[in-house]
Simulated assay, not measured.
Amino acid sequence: MAKSKYYAWAAAIAIFIVLMIVTPSIPQSQDYHDFADQRTLFFGIPNTLNVISNFPFLIVGMIGLILCHYRNYLKLSLQGELWGWSCFFIGVAAVAFGSSYYHLKPNDSRLVWDRLPMTIAFTSIMAIFIIERVDEKTGATSIIPLLVAGILSILYWITFDDLRPYAVVQFVPCIVIPLMAILMPPMYTHSTYWLWAAVFYLLAKVEEAEDKVIYKWAHHIVSGHTLKHLCAAMVPVFLTLMLAKRSIEPERKSLFETWKFYWIKVKDDEYKTQSFDCEYAAVRTSEP
């Protein structure tokens, strides 16, 4: 088992190195800072809605962090769980400050403080998932290396104007976590909350990409980027609800196995219904 873990990490590092060699660098586009909604609506706050829409991150992050440490309300018992979830909620709360600071005057130097707390959240949630679905010890020991890797991706972007490492840190968890949530047996109940969180994050990325289009569709009331902040804040909301509601899973079956079982059951019920109808139709009646 230990060797397979080392092989997995070695393979991941090798794939990353190959990607860095064969793919071109991705510089930070300055058009990224040109958001659709640049209105100053009240209190003299520039880009008002893009700034204040970060406030939910602070609320959810602080609530999650308090629940992690208040009388073990969330019942975090596995090795590294407390540290992993604490880092996640700290990152979420810090997004409120970093993203607000960036949106007051969008530029590359301020964008660092927007992306840094998000990177902390991404990498810590990946470590948490390894703890739950792969191995407790491996996940616990991966918290610091993953956090360091995330910070280094930001430093690499600042130094070389290349977003490739940051893109890996941001998007790999978005792909791997939903797949692992579906295919790997969960240790806890309410595993579908992971998928709801993934759906809202995907929706947030779509809204971010269609910032100007949504602003036009909404008749200049709200932009896609503002909605992106609100949808992204739903990710920690769902994960906090999951932590509050979950318990140890007595029968560790993956979501794929559960869905497959229900699908087979539905098909069997449909087949039995059709069979019953056929038998009923075959009955002959005679008139007296």
Score class of each variant (00 low, 15 high):
residue 77 S to T: 15
residue 147 L to G: 05
residue 53 S to N: 05
residue 202 L to Q: 10
residue 267 K to C: 00
residue 65 L to V: 11
residue 246 R to E: 00
residue 170 Q to L: 06
residue 198 A to L: 05
residue 160 F to C: 11
residue 257 E to Q: 12
residue 156 Y to L: 08
residue 167 A to W: 09
residue 211 D to F: 01
residue 215 Y to A: 02
residue 252 R to T: 06
residue 58 L to H: 08
residue 80 G to Q: 10
residue 288 P to Y: 12
residue 121 A to F: 01
residue 42 F to W: 12
residue 37 D to V: 04
residue 252 R to N: 11
residue 26 I to M: 09
residue 163 L to V: 04
residue 284 R to F: 07
residue 60 V to R: 00
residue 38 Q to C: 01
residue 45 I to K: 04
residue 9 W to I: 15
residue 70 Y to E: 09
residue 286 S to M: 08
residue 197 A to D: 02
residue 128 I to G: 00
residue 275 S to K: 13
residue 213 V to G: 06
residue 111 L to G: 02
residue 141 T to C: 06
residue 20 M to S: 14
residue 246 R to V: 02
residue 203 L to R: 03
residue 205 K to V: 09
residue 245 K to F: 04
residue 7 Y to A: 15
residue 164 R to Q: 05
residue 261 F to N: 09
residue 149 A to Y: 08
residue 91 G to D: 08
residue 65 L to C: 13
residue 45 I to D: 02
residue 129 F to V: 08
residue 178 P to R: 03
residue 140 A to R: 09
residue 178 P to K: 00
residue 111 L to Y: 00
residue 5 K to T: 13
residue 273 T to I: 09
residue 149 A to S: 11
residue 154 I to Y: 09
residue 223 S to I: 04
residue 222 V to S: 00
residue 185 P to C: 06
residue 28 Q to P: 06
residue 46 P to C: 03
residue 277 D to G: 15
residue 49 L to A: 04
residue 253 K to W: 05
residue 181 A to T: 11
residue 235 V to C: 09
residue 94 A to M: 15
residue 209 A to D: 09
residue 279 E to N: 14
residue 44 G to N: 04
residue 235 V to N: 04
residue 170 Q to C: 07
residue 79 Q to R: 12
residue 224 G to F: 05
residue 246 R to D: 02
residue 71 R to C: 06
residue 137 K to V: 06
residue 50 N to Q: 01
residue 238 F to A: 06
residue 12 A to V: 13
residue 281 A to F: 07
residue 255 L to K: 00
residue 92 V to G: 03
residue 66 I to A: 15
residue 252 R to E: 08
residue 230 L to E: 00
residue 117 P to L: 00
residue 215 Y to Q: 00
residue 262 Y to W: 08
residue 159 T to S: 14
residue 62 M to S: 12
residue 123 T to C: 08
residue 179 L to K: 07
residue 120 I to N: 03
residue 188 Y to M: 11
residue 187 M to F: 14
residue 239 L to W: 03
residue 278 C to T: 10
residue 32 Y to A: 07
residue 95 V to L: 12
residue 100 S to K: 03
residue 171 F to C: 05
residue 113 W to A: 06
residue 232 A to G: 14
residue 208 E to M: 09
residue 23 T to P: 11
residue 269 D to P: 08
residue 144 I to F: 11
residue 209 A to H: 14
residue 96 A to I: 08
residue 13 I to E: 04
residue 273 T to K: 15
residue 125 I to P: 00
residue 180 M to C: 13
residue 137 K to I: 04
residue 47 N to H: 00
residue 88 F to N: 03
residue 250 P to D: 00
residue 205 K to Y: 08
residue 156 Y to P: 06
residue 69 H to Q: 14
residue 77 S to N: 15
residue 237 V to I: 04
residue 126 M to A: 10
residue 108 D to Q: 07
residue 287 E to N: 10
residue 25 S to F: 10
residue 274 Q to E: 10
residue 141 T to Q: 07
residue 228 K to D: 02
residue 194 W to H: 14
residue 111 L to N: 03
residue 230 L to Q: 04
residue 179 L to N: 05
residue 240 T to A: 12
residue 45 I to V: 10
residue 73 Y to A: 13
residue 181 A to M: 06
residue 216 K to C: 05
residue 94 A to W: 07
residue 1 M to Q: 14
residue 198 A to F: 01
residue 179 L to H: 02
residue 41 L to E: 11
residue 206 V to T: 13
residue 165 P to G: 14
residue 191 S to Y: 03
residue 241 L to C: 10
